[in-house]
């Protein structure tokens, strides 16, 4: 059975390591915060200027001066520090963030990522995504394996405008986990009951 959204977050949480500084994107990546293993020391960075992001607030704790990069109200922790946007992206671009988990529209077999723009549709902007994929040490993508019509989203070459070139290290889809390796994508793990034949049929990228 293919993985659910929450399964994807749980599996993506396996990427976390003790002592990591991590930036989580909007959507499924945000759910990864619910799966940080007990006892593991992970610090979440929010690119609007916060290191050490806590859970959503109680209704009584809501503070308009305290939001995450998705503009949701959030809380601080004992370890929290605040900084301006230039310093925030110095952390990101400067390679100080260990891991970024973010969503994607398409990924190519060389690790190119497209997740910000569909030509002809209204473009909302790339926000911090281009800086994240260019700067963080490891970039993991969570996404649906195909679009709603069943078309492959793991491609030989992205058709959409890129967010970054050769920047993705691992892809976690509802069908399996894939690593970007020389020559194409390697199947690390398939979701329970998902066969290699099904993955091959739903993937355009070269599988090695």
């Amino acid at each position: 059975m293919p993985w659910t959204r929450d399964d994807l977050a749980r599996i993506a949480a396996r990427e976390l390591r003790d002592g990591f500084y991590v930036n989580l994107g909007i959507g499924i990546p945000t759910l990864v915060a619910n799966h940080i293993p007990a006892g593991m020391d992970v610090t979440l960075q929010s690119e609007n200027g916060m290191l050490g992001m806590g859970p959503f607030p109680l209704a009584s704790e809501v503070d308009p001066d305290l939001i995450n990069a998705g503009k949701q109200t959030i809380t601080e922790l004992d370890r929290t520090s605040y900084f301006n946007s230039a310093e925030s992206f110095a952390m990101i671009r400067g390679g100080h963030i260990d891991l970024s988990i973010l969503g994607a529209m398409e990924v190519s077999e060389t690790g190119d990522l497209a997740n910000w723009m569909v030509p002809g549709k209204l473009v909302k902007g790339m926000g911090g995504a281009m800086d994240l994929v260019a700067g963080v040490k490891r970039c993991v993508v969570t996404m649906d394996h195909t679009d709603k019509a069943g078309n492959a989203k793991l491609l030989k070459t992205c058709t959409l405008p890129l967010t970054g070139k050769a920047c993705v290290h691992r892809i976690i889809t509802n069908l399996g986990v894939f690593d970007v390796v020389p020559g194409g994508l390697a199947i690390v793990e398939a979701a329970p009951g998902v066969t290699r034949a099904e993955i091959v049929q739903k993937t355009q990228a070269t599988l090695v």
Binding site: E47, N84, S85, A86, S88, F89, I92, R93, V123, G125, M126, G127, G128, A129, M130, D131, G135
Partner: peptide
């Protein structure tokens, strides 16, 4: 459009 970190810098 500017990438957010590029805009800040």
């Amino acid at each position: 459009f500017n990438p957010q970190g590029t805009l800040a810098e």
